[in-house]
Design a protein around this nucleic acid. Structure first.
Lengths: 222, 222
DNA sequence: TAAGTTTTTTAGATTAGCTTAAAAATGTTT
DNA sequence: AAACATTTTTAAGCTAATCTAAAAAACTTA
C-alpha cells in the first residue's frame, strides 16, 4: 500500500506514451530522452517501479507496464486532459498554453475532485487538442481518423486533432486559421514537395507543407 | 534566483500563520507542532530558509518572515483560498471538504492561471469559510467582525466566518443549519456555562455552547 | 543562584532521486 | 567471428528532507 511519488508517476506516464508508439516496450534510451535524465537514473527508477510491481522489467530489454502501472498512467492522462479542457473552456487559455499547467495539475490526488470536474465540464470525450479522455476505468473513445495528408482530391473532412503538440506548431495553426472542427477540402496535391492546397471552411484556399498536413488528424465528413 | 520547493513553501506558510497569532515570531516548537515534524528538521529548514533570505533567523529565538518570505506566504494563501472558492462554488463541495484539496492546488505555479481563475470566480473577496482572499500584491480586505459570543441581548448579526476550520466543527455547523450569511439574534445568555440562545434567520431558536459561539465570526447588521 | 525542565541545536544516519565514470551486455559491420 | 559502437547496468557519491539521540542554551522555580 506504499504511495507513489510525482516522479514515479511521471516515469509511468513516459513509459505509457512510449509503449503507445513502439511495439516492443520502452527502452532505457527512449525513457531517458523523454524524461531528460541520465540512463543511470532510469535504471535506478526501473528497479524501484519493478519492486512495486508497476512494470515488467528484465535487464537489457524494454519495459512494459503491468495492469496496475497502466491504470495509474491512464488515470494521469485522464486528469491531464480534463484539466486541459478546464483551462481552455473555462479560463480561456489557448491550446498552445495549457500543457505545462496540466502537467502540474494532473498530480493532484482526489478521485472525487476529478469526477466532479468532469461533470462540471459536461463529460467531454476529447481535450482541446482532439485527444481522447479516458473514463474512470481507463477506457477511451476511439475515433475514425486519418492524416490530412491522406485526403483524396476533392474529399472533405473535419479537423479533429493534432499529432504534434508543441506550442510553436499550435501557434502556427492558429495563425493559419486552422482550429479543431474546421472544415477542409483537398483542392490540389503537389507531388514535388508533397505540399497540398486546401479550401478552409468553404472560404479561402490555403497551401500547407507536408510537415503541417502530416500532423493534423481529420475525420471524413458523413 | 533558486526555486523554492513545496516543502519550503509549507514551512513559510506555517511561519506566516503562527506569526499572525503570536506577536513574538514563530518558535521551533510551534512550527514543528504545526508541521508535524521533529524539532531537528525544523532547525535544519530554518537555516536553509535563512540562507535564502526568506526569514529572519537567530539561534534560540523566534523567526519572522522577510518581505520576500511574506510575499510568498500571502501568495500561497491567495491561491489556497481562490481554489477553495472554485471547489465550493463550481464543483459543489461543502466547506468541510475543500481544505485538503486546496492544500495541494495552492502549489500549482502559474500567475496567469491564478489570475484567470480569480476572474472566472468573479473576483471573490472571501473564501467559503469567510476568510479574506489576498489580492495580487498580498493586500487583504479587512472586515468589521466579532465573535458571536460577544453579541449583546437582542443584537442582530450576520455570520461572516469561522475561527476553527476542522471538518468536524464545520459539519456540526451544517447540522445546526449555521452557514455563512445566516442571520442571528441573541435571545438569551446563560451565565452558568456561557451558552447562548439565538434566533436563526428569524425562525427557530437554537442553543449554542460557548465552544461554538466562540468560533463563529459575525458582523453587526446595519 | 543552583537545580531542574523545556526548547533548540548539533551530530550522525537514512531515503529518494539524481549525477558521472566505468564495466558489462548487446548490436552492427566487415 | 572479431572489432567497433551503442545501450544498459553498476558503483560511488551528491543534495534535500527527514529521523533519533545527545549536547547546549534558555527558561522556571524553589
Amino acid at each position: 500500500m506504499d504511495s507513489i511519488s510525482v516522479t514515479e508517476e511521471n516515469y509511468l506516464k513516459a513509459i505509457y506514451k512510449i509503449c503507445e508508439k513502439e511495439e516492443k516496450g520502452a527502452s532505457n534510451k527512449a525513457i531517458s530522452t523523454r524524461m531528460d535524465t541520465s540512463a543511470a537514473s532510469v535504471t535506478d527508477m526501473l528497479k524501484r517501479l519493478a519492486k512495486k510491481e508497476l512494470i515488467h522489467y528484465e535487464k537489457h530489454s524494454g519495459v512494459t507496464l503491468t495492469r496496475e502501472g497502466r491504470a495509474i498512467a491512464t488515470h494521469l492522462v485522464r486528469k491531464h486532459r480534463l484539466w486541459e479542457v478546464f483551462l481552455a473552456d473555462k479560463l480561456n487559455f489557448s491550446w498552445d498554453e495549457i500543457h505545462p499547467m496540466a502537467e502540474e495539475l494532473e498530480h493532484i490526488n482526489s478521485e472525487e475532485l476529478i469526477n466532479r470536474l468532469e461533470k462540471f465540464l459536461g463529460y467531454p470525450k476529447f481535450d482541446p487538442h482532439g485527444d481522447p479522455i479516458p473514463d474512470e476505468e481507463g477506457r477511451i473513445t476511439t475515433r475514425q481518423q486519418m492524416l490530412l495528408s491522406k485526403l483524396e482530391m476533392g474529399e472533405k473532412g473535419t479537423i479533429v486533432g493534432v499529432q504534434e503538440h508543441s506550442a510553436t506548431f499550435l501557434q502556427y495553426l492558429d495563425r493559419l486559421g486552422l482550429t479543431l472542427d474546421s472544415q477542409v477540402t483537398l483542392v490540389e496535391k503537389f507531388e514535388y514537395d508533397q505540399s497540398v492546397k486546401i479550401k478552409l471552411n468553404g472560404m479561402l484556399d490555403l497551401l500547407l507543407s507536408d510537415k503541417v498536413s502530416n500532423n493534423i488528424f481529420i475525420k471524413i465528413n458523413g
